[in-house]
């Protein structure tokens, strides 16, 4: 009884939902990247590494330039660069896409940590100055609305960017010519090819897009939500984004819902001071939930038909 009261109290705490949205959008960005990449037929579990590279680049550039926008752009490019490697290895060389992804993740961890030690002589970068951080927007008046104000109008700029990208990617995938072609290539590359679509270009573009989005997420993590770079600071978020994407059935909106569930998990753990339950046990919840969903209790999740299959022209 007391527990129920505690839970209810927790659920009406704005901070809970504020953090949920922020953590959710952090996962959403790489998840959107994953959606695009996998919709085009390339399995991408390298969002983790791309994000980490982005985080590193953001902090390194912020240290030098002190400008959050330049830092973010470089972070996006750095994520894209990692994606290029993944794209070449898995599209051009038709390597196993999962193994390539694992290699990217290890590589990204190694190279960022190595450079971090090297550049700073093992000291680590200083925390990024407030002026070099991606700003939080306090939207006047609206942020004073009780409960909803802090949740929706008191967030980092990237939260709004992320929500915009959510709509944009959803629209792009399901309403535009480009989206139609991406989905066609991911479902049936032969059919797309016979219809005159360049399968390789679409796949390269999609994988690189996933890297750009992951790089942006890295910047959001390193110079938005926090102001530091730590070795391996993405801490598995890329993998969670992957799970969210599958959970969300390869759709942007579905992925966002899943990201919010993971975000809520994070947030409940952080806000559980009113709840008398072990944080670590609470932390397990989103993962158990995902497992249950994947086990088919809620519905089977079917990937794009050609997901993970390299395309060889002329094959049937």
């Amino acid at each position: 009884m007391q527990l129920i009261g505690q839970i209810l109290h927790l659920l009406i705490t704005p901070a809970l939902w504020q953090t949920t949205l922020e953590s959710g959008v952090l996962l959403l960005l790489p998840a959107l990247g994953g959606v695009i990449s996998e919709r085009s037929g390339v399995v991408n579990i390298a969002m983790e590494g791309m994000m980490l590279t982005g985080a590193f680049a953001a902090v390194a550039v912020a240290e030098v330039t002190g400008n959050p926008w330049i830092s973010t752009l470089v972070a996006i490019a750095a994520g894209g660069l990692m994606a290029v490697i993944h794209a070449v290895v898995s599209i051009r060389f038709r390597a196993d896409q999962i193994i390539s992804g694992v290699a990217i993740n290890i590589f990204a961890f190694g190279i960022t940590a190595f450079l971090n030690s090297k550049i700073t002589n093992f000291q680590g970068f200083n925390p990024v100055k407030p002026s070099a951080q991606l700003p939080y927007l306090h939207i006047p008046i609206l942020d004073k609305i009780p409960f909803f104000g802090p949740i929706f109008f008191d967030q980092n700029i990237i939260v709004y960017v992320g929500l915009f990208l959510l709509v944009a990617v959803q629209f792009m995938l399901f309403r535009t010519r480009l989206g139609l072609r991406i989905r066609a290539v991911g479902e049936h590359p032969q059919a797309a090819d016979t219809a005159g679509i360049n399968v390789y270009s679409i796949r390269y573009g999609s994988v690189i897009a996933s890297g750009l989005l992951s790089g942006l997420a890295g910047a959001f993590l390193a110079i938005g939500i926090t102001n530091v770079f730590n070795d391996g600071m993405t801490d598995g978020r890329g993998y969670i984004a992957l799970a969210a994407m599958i959970f969300g059935k390869w759709t942007p909106i579905g992925s966002f819902v899943a990201c919010l569930i993971f975000g809520l998990g994070t947030s409940i753990v952080a806000n559980n001071s009113t709840l008398n339950v072990s944080r670590d046990l609470l932390s397990m919840l989103p993962y158990i939930l995902t497992l249950v969903v994947l086990a088919g209790l809620v519905g089977k999740s079917i990937p794009p038909a050609a997901d993970g299959q390299p395309y060889t022209p002329g094959s049937e």
């Binding site: 060389f93 390597a95 196993d96 694992v102 290699a103 190694g110 190595f114 093992f122 070795d231």
Partner: peptide
């Protein structure tokens, strides 16, 4: 020399095997 060099070496091993994996 940062010990993270070891991670880089491991990753590159994995890459070059993956590309030739099959």
């Amino acid at each position: 020399v940062s010990q993270n060099l070891v991670d880089i070496i491991q990753a590159v091993i994995l890459f070059s095997i993956a590309a030739n994996f099959l």
